[in-house]
Design a protein around this nucleic acid. Structure first.
Lengths: 210, 210
DNA sequence: CCCGGGTGTTGTCGGCGTCTACATTGAAGT
DNA sequence: ACTTCAATGTAGACGCCGACAACACCCGGG
């Protein structure tokens, strides 16, 4: 076996992860439509049937990718809020939204997978759980914000849906050339802050609207 | 020949429209991933090469479908606002959002096409124009609302982006089983109204927040 | 009347996802 | 150390797909 020679061992050793990584790259470069198991296998120097050992179907690969995307989004969003570290729930809620938006803009391939229609059509339990865990972050902070006296007239589930949907919709639109042209030459972080200010106001806090 | 027999004339007569209609049906039933030109041709009783006369590629068919989706969304949204017919710009803005959301929920196949990643990747000019025309409706009412004294501190383009993104994001999330479970057994129209109230408040107008 | 361009057909090509039979490997149990 | 066996990778086949080219049909303008 020539201990040092790892040129092309019969077994790849980490094929499953390599497939997922390469898949994310391809989606980022050419879109989900251009993804093919055979092309991934070629790129990784394995035979066209090898991926079947790790993913029963292409749909299962996509679902796995989407699951990891939700987990990554959750980590990035949480980290952004914790780094900010305010004790005010509504400030944290704002930071969550900005964190998610930044992650979405910096990880277009994974963002695309989050709610891709063809991905969610074949959703399995782990995908649903990852999505749920992401949503729970928002929900918790929403409830805290309401306990703080804000948005008291609105059902917390409706509010969670809203707070969840806004950054998602913004990120989706920002990925089109049209919306980008309208947002013009504004700095990305400024734009994100301005947009989230409309959802959860945190500037000049203490005068208008509570 | 056989003048009266129109069972299967050599020329279909309206193949292009028939393809678009059938494509929308298939997308609604099984998703864009399951769409194939050959299956459409089979369903319509024409040969597998016939669609190529009307759409140079599958991507062109999808782009055409997306263009029609933006136009349909524009018509439905405008109609909803006009039917409401208030002279207050912010009330009309709210009605626009609710109209779009209702359309999106009632036309899932077309909504899916609006910003489908693989569709927009091959966007042509007519698709961009249709998208632009939709956005302009929102932009006009946003400007009127600002002239009315509301949201005066925010750039109108940012505000348009926000107002555009919210119903889109909500509609996208509402198409997942998870978000639906959270919204629970709430009546759809009520849910839409509650959500849009968070974007553009119109209830108990005149007391809090302007 | 004819003829030319638009429309539909048929055949072909390479690529794809998936399945099956076979090869290779490393590790667990004796 | 030897055997066994499940996991992993390979090679081939099948049917479907998108795209293209060559041919067939049909209608309307000269």
């Amino acid at each position: 076996m020539a201990a040092g020679n790892k040129a092309r061992p019969y077994h790849h050793g980490d094929l499953r992860d390599a497939i997922l990584t390469r898949a994310a790259e391809i989606i980022g470069d050419k879109g989900i439509e251009a993804l093919s198991l055979r092309a991934i296998a070629r790129d990784l120097g394995v035979s066209h049937g090898a991926p079947n050992r790790h993913f029963r179907s292409k749909a299962e690969l996509l679902a796995t990718l989407a699951t990891e995307a939700w987990q990554a989004a959750r980590r990035a969003t949480l980290a952004a809020a914790e780094q900010h570290g305010s004790e005010n729930p509504h400030v944290r809620l704002n930071a969550l939204g900005r964190g998610f938006l930044r992650w979405a803009m910096n990880n277009p391939a994974l963002f695309t997978a989050l709610l891709h229609p063809d991905v969610n059509r074949y959703a399995d339990d782990s995908l649903r759980i990852a999505q749920l865990e992401f949503e729970q972050i928002i929900h918790e902070v929403v409830v805290e914000t309401q306990a703080d006296g804000r948005y008291s007239g609105t059902d917390s589930n409706v509010l969670t849906l809203y707070t969840n949907a806004v950054p998602y919709g913004i990120a989706a639109l920002l990925r089109t050339p049209l919306a980008l042209s309208r947002s013009g030459k504004i700095n990305q972080d400024e734009l994100i802050a301005d947009l989230m200010e409309l959802v959860v106001p945190i500037r000049h806090s203490g005068n208008e609207r509570q």
